[in-house]
Amino acid sequence: MEFGILMGDQPVSTPPEEHLDLMLRKVEAAQRAGFTYLTIGQHYLYDGFRWFQPIPLLARLAAELDDHVRIGTTVLVGPVHHPVSLAEDLATLDVITRGKLVVGIGTGYLAHEYDVFGKPFKQRYSLLEELIEVMTKCWTEDRVTHHGRFFDIDDRPTHLHPIQKPRPPIWLGAMKETGVRRAARHGDVWTITPQQTIEQVEGLIGTYIDERARCGLPLTKFPLRRELQVAASYDDALRDFAEVARVKYVSYAGQGMQLLDQERVENEFLENVKDHVLLGTGDQVCDQIRDIAARLPIGPLLIRPHWPGMDAEQTAAYLERVGREVVAPLRDLESIGFEEFQPPVLAG
């Protein structure tokens, strides 16, 4: 089992140079602890928290990578970009990393991000599909012609291709059946979000498999995002997680993230989130991951080592402990394959 981290945001009150130093120290600590995927998401004009833009940040972090470590965007807000610009930026990043880039992409959930770029929020899914189509042409063809609903390109040469062929792997985020089908058609894998329970995921994997088969596409194991908190006991882990994560979850819910109920997050935080968080001692968390790997075809497992307000020392200590108590013991763990996956039996 491979493990990765999501490098997130930081309160805007943090000086930007301190924020960058935190990112660099996080990358160093994660690699030392055995993590092999380093990823970051994207937001624009975000309220209260600073998100470094992923492409320039990952280009800087590429200089710090060990040979076996990959970096990725998890996830870009794809439809607010022009596909030619984004394709060339990402191809450049793939070259800079010598072919170690993963392109995680989705629609996001904030309407204001679309408003400021003049993009129709209600058409974000169609925009995403056409964006991926155009980017793939830019990456794989010597000349591009595309006449679509949103973009129009007439026989233009391409000059910038990624190292990875035919393209860097595309991870598509999705939370519901329609999105999972879209991920099956237009991406290489579906990225499972941390807000989905394992039971919800089981119910959607069959949908994904059916759609890939219909399109004649191969199957690849799913990156699984999960929050994870290790402590001396389950109760301690639950308490520690609430202490670091509650403020951010309230922010997510208040800004409209799907699958999070704002009132429940504010007033019943632990009851609302504990079913999709890995909690307990190192041994307990390892057992939880083994159980998931016995039920779902997953890999890598991506966790968040840092919540806004934590300092570099706290983050490094978290990564060291998780590396020692979870990553190292599960290094040889293999999840089930698709041929072994058993879809849930529907009642009635």
Rank of each mutant, 00 (worst) to 15 (best):
F35M: 01
L76K: 01
L93K: 11
H81P: 05
P120L: 03
R290C: 02
T136Y: 04
L65F: 05
G106E: 06
S85Y: 11
Q258I: 02
V247Y: 10
S13L: 12
Y252D: 07
I71F: 00
K137V: 06
G187R: 11
L259F: 11
Q200C: 05
D311P: 14
D240Y: 01
R214Q: 08
F338G: 12
D283Y: 12
H112T: 06
M1E: 00
C215M: 07
H146C: 04
M175A: 11
D287F: 12
D155H: 09
E199T: 04
P218S: 10
M135L: 03
N267E: 12
D21A: 14
E88V: 03
D142A: 09
E211D: 13
P56E: 10
R214I: 03
P308C: 15
Y37M: 13
R98Q: 12
L346V: 10
A174K: 12
T73G: 05
E263M: 08
G309E: 07
L76F: 02
R331D: 04
L101F: 06
F151Q: 05
R214F: 04
T281Q: 03
A213V: 14
H43D: 04
E177F: 03
A184T: 03
Q53K: 08
L45C: 13
T14G: 07
M23D: 09
G173K: 14
P120T: 03
A293W: 05
H19M: 09
D275K: 01
L302S: 06
W307H: 14
R239M: 02
T140I: 01
L278H: 11
A293R: 01
I5S: 09
F241D: 00
A111E: 10
Y252I: 03
A245L: 08
L333P: 10
A317Q: 12
T97N: 03
R226M: 15
V144T: 04
L333D: 07
I96K: 15
F52G: 13
P343N: 09
R25S: 05
D115Q: 04
Y37F: 13
F49H: 13
K100R: 04
F338D: 15
P297H: 15
Q53T: 10
V247L: 07
V27L: 08
R181V: 01
P157L: 02
T193W: 11
L301A: 05
V134M: 02
P157N: 06
R60S: 13
Q53F: 07
R70I: 01
R167W: 06
E2S: 12
L259K: 09
A184C: 08
P15G: 15
R25L: 00
E263K: 10
D21L: 12
P329N: 09
L6K: 11
D67Y: 05
F341M: 07
M135F: 04
W307D: 07
G99H: 02
E2F: 04
F341L: 09
D21N: 08
V326R: 04
R98F: 11
R214T: 07
I192R: 06
T207E: 09
L278D: 11
R60P: 13
P300K: 09
G173S: 11
L333R: 06
G72K: 10
V277C: 14
A62G: 00
F117W: 03
L219E: 15
K26L: 13
G337R: 05
V80R: 01
P343F: 09
A237C: 11
A30E: 06
